[in-house]
Design a protein around this nucleic acid. Structure first.
Ligand SMILES: [Zn+2]
Ligand SMILES: [Zn+2]
Ligand SMILES: [Zn+2]
Ligand SMILES: [Zn+2]
Lengths: 142, 142
DNA sequence: ATTAATATTGAGACTCATTATCAAAATACC
DNA sequence: GGTATTTTGATAATGAGTCTCAATATTAAT
């Protein structure tokens, strides 16, 4: 059993939820993707192998994966929410090129630490951080 | 004529667009609001004074204000896009409470400076920064 | 293994923010 | 004025995300 599966199982247990077949398929599909993804991308990949997982269940399962700390909602792009892994990935921020659309990931641990310090000063309890900058990548900015 | 009006006028001119009555009403309503706003908030405020500005025109005018650099699309909250002024406002980041929906603004100059330093190391030229953290505010986190 | 209690599912209806359409009205230029 | 071009308001359409519900799956107890 892969580690992310074990983690998801214990999250489900802790909430007396069940590791069902559709949830397992979704979990595996999510961790077979190594870029940012939206529901449609995920749905298409799952449907290539399994006819019996519905969009509704994907929409229901993603919040569980977020809640369990395995993934996060990271960007909004073309009017769709996009997700990415947390488990097995370092915290990072996104530089998004306005010209070519590429997304660059950069380590954000230092900045996030400062942000948490700022928050604790105000009494705000941070659950999730999103940092992004739009502009021109080094190729497009010449 | 207020400064933001002059700036919007020259933007419109530069694109051979016209400063019409509805656009002027919308511009003024936008700059009479000093918090984050969404289309509904704006529409309600405008409607108190003017019966003849439609939602459609608001949806059409906001991108013009963004393009002209007067406002920006700053966050997404309760499934709605929210906007805020750029013109005349200091850079800041957002703490968004997941429970009550309130948005807290915190000075972000220190963090943005670090971010720009990070970017210059990678050759990325930043045009816009968005930093936000979701979680529980001090009231809701008790 | 049966049963009963509970959780989950897929299908499709629904919501609601945003966009597109289009005929009528406003505007700019002659 | 008249004409070409924009812009507008009303309304229809779109589409991501949510909700409903009867049918199915899971679990734990017998
Ligand atoms: Zn680029
Ligand atoms: Zn990422
Ligand atoms: Zn709160
Ligand atoms: Zn703000």
């Amino acid at each position: 059993m892969e580690e992310h599966e074990g983690l998801f199982r214990s999250y489900l247990d802790s909430r007396s939820l069940k590791m069902t077949r559709p949830r397992k398929i979704i979990l595996e599909a999510v961790f077979a993707i190594h870029e940012h993804f939206d529901v449609d991308i995920l749905y298409d990949r799952i449907r290539k192998k399994h006819r019996d997982v519905s969009r509704a269940t994907i929409y229901r399962t993603l919040p569980l994966l977020v809640e369990s700390g395995l993934i996060k909602q990271s960007l909004r792009c073309q009017a769709k929410d996009h997700y990415e892994h947390i488990f097995g990935h370092k915290q990072h921020l996104h530089f998004i090129c306005n010209r070519c659309g590429r997304i660059f990931e950069v380590d954000s641990s230092g900045i996030e630490q400062d942000l948490r310090k700022l928050a604790s000063g105000t009494g705000f309890r941070i659950e999730e951080i999103n940092i992004e900058a739009n502009g021109l990548c080094s190729d497009c900015g010449k």
